[in-house]
Design a protein around this nucleic acid. Structure first.
Length: 502
RNA sequence: GGCCCCAUCGUCUAGCCAGGCCUAGGACGCGGCCCUCUCAAGGCCGAGACAGGGGUUCGAAUCCCCUUGGGGCCA
């Protein structure tokens, strides 16, 4: 039994897409499950849109995810090179072989002539298929075309038009294609570059790929590719077509659905383990009523035959939930990682300098401690605790509901006095102060707590008030209280010049 | 337009291949309650699906056919 070899072949025209990551991951899981190898190949034949930076970016995204490859453009391997632009000689060589054996021929038809054929077919209400008029050109005709300056394309010669093609798909079973749409299709353009279906087959074969696992959008291409294998007398690899990844509106997942690049998730502070775990559960489920699995468990359980056939909607909410599960676990198993993640987020937002001193590190650690499991993704630090690092941004709605009562300024100045006067400024003391004042005023303590929170943080959500105050420290608390009172008194906000309470 | 794929709660899915164990299970999300200074987390409870129609069968979510709906490829 040959070793299993799978591959993923991204085009370096953008960052790694979650759909691509998903496909790659299943290839990876399958290879790892069978003790095989996973290969990365770069499909950069579209030179106008491919860049070297994107090759590096994609490799980096894979590294970050923890999807490792055994052969690829950077590490090389026995079947290289691993980028298509470096394999042009190989495609030419195989195209020549096909030509020599008569399985392919030069075609001098111009786009206009082809277009005319197509029109005719349409007018007669029959499916278009290339007429094959260049199948047997005499040397005189060839000479004439050449003299006209025509550059030929190379077409595959399909032996038998009437034949049905059966694809044995590991996920879908037997898929039967009726023959009418198969024709002598182009495998090499007139400029000598190979077409996708051709390059793909040559690469997969010469790289000894045993299992082609790809998205369903390629299922319709499979018969065409099978024809090339047959022309060469090669044994085709096993194929498996994964279901499509959809956006919430059930169309193919794309940029307009929001974040589709793995890079974006990384920047939002997602954990690679959580992303992989989430991706694993799209189109596939181990037969247990649970959803959290380690990579090892995933590898052990993965079976291609169990992958579903119906398309899956990418559920951002569930990913967030799952990330939260991993984040909580990390919180007590490897706090340093959480801290690093948070630090990165703060730097990206410009709330921290590049070089972070030890005292700030300590402060961040305390913030994370106070924020606790509110942090489901890295960016939640901002959502719940931006005010720890910058002046609060006041949520207008929060101000209106909690700071606009006429008794509020009075409460706040009483609080301010007490906070100025007290000896210690720890959570127990401030809690004591707030609760006694509430008792004295004969109001529920929440009557003081809510306005205080909004005054200090700008929002209605966040960590416990007293912990937050202790961390903020007396100085900042007093400063913010003062500022809030001025804001309420003056009735002015910088932006509109109107009262926040009207 | 031609060809191909798909079809269980809003979403991811278990069950389907080997029909009865399914008054269809779990998870996310949603609603309620508890905890509580808010949010988050946690606990408890709840609403929520076999696309429709025909068969086959003693019996169908499970097998077959049609319709409908979604998606993809080629043009």
């Amino acid at each position: 039994m040959n070793t299993v070899r799978t591959r993923f072949a991204p085009s370096p025209t953008g960052y790694l897409h979650v759909g691509g990551a998903w496909t790659a991951f299943f290839n990876w899981l399958f290879a790892r499950h069978h003790g095989g190898r996973f290969i990365l190949r770069i499909e950069d034949t579209d030179r106008s849109r491919s860049t070297e930076e994107m090759v590096e970016a994609i490799l980096e995204d894979f590294r970050w995810l923890g999807i490792t490859w055994d052969e690829g453009p950077d590490v090389g391997g026995p079947y290289g090179p691993y980028r298509q632009t470096e394999r042009m000689a190989i495609y030419q060589e195989y195209a020549r072989k096909l030509l020599e054996r008569g399985h392919a021929y030069y075609c001098y038809c111009t786009p206009e002539e082809l277009e005319a054929e197509r029109h005719k077919a349409q007018a007669e209400h029959r499916p278009y298929r290339y007429s094959g008029r260049c199948r047997s050109l005499s040397s005189k005709e060839v000479a004439r075309f050449e003299a006209e300056g025509r550059r030929p394309t190379i077409r595959l010669r399909v032996r038998d038009y009437g034949e049905t093609i059966v694809v044995h798909d590991l996920i879908r079973g037997e898929v039967v294609f009726s023959p009418e749409h198969l024709d002598d299709y182009i495998i090499v353009r007139s400029d000598g570059t190979p077409l996708y279906n051709f390059a793909n087959v040559i690469d997969d074969h010469t790289m000894a790929i045993t299992h082609v696992i790809r998205a369903e959008e390629h299922l319709s291409n499979t018969p065409k590719q099978l024809l090339i294998y047959r022309a060469f007398d090669w044994t085709p690899p096993q194929v498996a077509h994964l279901p499509m990844l959809l956006g919430p509106d059930r169309s193919k997942l794309s940029k307009r659905h929001g974040a589709t690049a793995v890079r974006q998730y990384r920047e939002e502070g997602f954990l690679p383990e959580a992303i992989l775990n989430y991706l694993a559960l799209l189109g596939w489920y181990p037969e247990e009523d649970r959803e959290i699995y380690s990579l090892e468990e995933l590898i052990a359980r993965f079976h291609l035959e169990d992958v579903g056939k119906s398309p899956s909607v990418f559920d951002y909410q569930k990913l967030v939930w799952m990330n939260g599960v991993y984040m909580r676990k990390l919180m007590h198993e490897d706090r340093a990682k959480v801290l690093a993640l948070v630090e990165e987020t703060l730097k990206r937002e410009g709330l921290l300098p590049e070089a972070v001193d030890p005292a700030t590190r300590e402060y961040i650690a305390r913030v994370v401690e106070v924020l606790g499991d509110r942090i489901k993704v890295g960016r939640d630090v901002l959502r719940y605790g931006d005010f720890f690092f910058t002046e609060p941004t006041y949520d207008p709605e929060a101000v209106r509901t909690y700071l606009c009562g006429e008794e509020i300024p009075g409460y706040l100045s009483r609080l301010e006095e007490e906070f100025t006067r007290c000896q210690e400024f720890d959570r127990a003391t401030v809690e004591q102060i707030v609760r006694s004042l509430a008792a004295e005023l004969q109001v529920s303590s929440r009557v003081l707590i809510h306005p205080l929170r909004v005054a200090l943080t700008g929002k209605t959500i966040g960590p416990g008030l007293f912990e937050l105050m202790e961390l903020l420290g007396r100085h900042r608390v007093l400063q913010r209280l003062q500022r809030t009172r001025e804001m309420l008194k003056g009735g002015l906000t910088a932006s509109t010049g109107s009262s926040p309470c009207s």
